[in-house]
């Protein structure tokens, strides 16, 4: 439906693949017929080991443990308030946690000696509400961190930004400001902004849940392509179509705990826990 907005860099997805990326796309069956993405076999990129977090007396994360290998696409889902957004924000230390350990590419993020700005510059993050900087043009949004964090020159940063804008189909909007773009366009710019830092892993925190339904597809298209290129991705989302199409693994969270952590086929085929079954039946029934 929106594949035209995406100039192909890697081979273009088949027509029905693009259609399947849309949220309200047809029955589940067509999604299952998708060819599986290449299996991820790399070493660990992110390890989350026994992480617990409290807000005062209230425990938001309880002993979460999982790992994401290089090249792996992991979807984190669960009901609202299950702690999935909090967990993903712990990965690049946007949220502190009180117990456990997280490493990114071998670096412990809770270690006081870790240079967090440097680490974060290698971890791309996409937010629910885009969080483009409203006072900067699209070009400046893309080049700010490249220049201030990576020390790239203005020309280099702008060229890199422009190339990525072209990739997400928004080159013509480079001179505009975020407020002049639609939600879907803003989120594609936000993805390009994260990619401009040459990240080794991308975190997505509900990237489509603040979008009008007709704009979800264009953002998912970009994410699908990124996954196909082998980017390591941790994606908090309710888009089960996306999960079926490109995820390797699905993590299901509820009440701050990782309830289920399974290969995609197992998760959709026969979720072990009752809570995951209930969640799936609710989310897939309409």
């Amino acid at each position: 439906m929106t594949s035209s907005a995406m100039p192909p860099v890697s081979p273009a997805p088949e027509p029905q693949a693009a259609a399947a990326a849309a949220p309200a796309s047809g029955p589940v069956g067509t999604l299952l017929s998708e060819p599986p993405p290449a299996a991820a076999t790399g070493g660990p990129m992110i390890t989350i080991d026994g992480v617990s977090k409290w807000y005062g007396d209230f425990q938001v994360l309880t002993n979460c443990t999982t790992a994401i290998r290089k090249g792996e696409v992991v979807v984190v889902c669960g009901p609202s308030g299950s702690g999935k957004s909090t967990l993903i924000k712990c990965v690049n230390a946007l949220e502190p946690f009180q117990k456990g350990q997280i490493t990114v590419d071998g670096t412990q993020i809770a270690n006081k000696k870790t240079n967090l700005p440097k680490l974060r510059s290698r971890v791309g993050m996409v937010f629910q509400h885009f969080e483009l900087f409203p006072h900067l043009s699209i070009t400046d949004n893309l080049s700010l961190a490249q220049r201030k964090v990576l020390g790239r020159g203005r020309d280099e940063a702008e060229a890199k930004g422009l190339a990525l804008l072209e990739r997400v189909g928004l080159k013509a909007h480079a001179h505009k400001y975020p407020g002049q773009l639609s939600g879907g366009q803003q989120q594609r710019v936000a993805i390009a902004r994260a990619l401009a830092m040459n990240p080794i892993v991308m975190l997505f925190d509900e990237p489509t849940s603040a979008l009008d339904p007709e704009m979800v597809g264009e953002v998912l298209d970009v994410m699908v392509e990124l996954a196909r290129e082998g980017m390591t991705m941790m994606v908090v989302t309710h888009e089960m179509g996306f999960a079926r199409k490109v995820a390797h693994r699905v993590i299901f969270m509820d009440k701050g705990e990782i309830v289920e952590d399974a290969q995609k086929e197992d998760f959709f085929g026969s979720p072990r826990s009752e809570r995951a079954q209930t969640f799936l039946s609710r989310i897939l029934s309409h």
Partner: peptide
Amino acid sequence: GQRMAGTALGL
């Protein structure tokens, strides 16, 4: 989220 976005970019 604005502060978070800046922080997440490594600023």
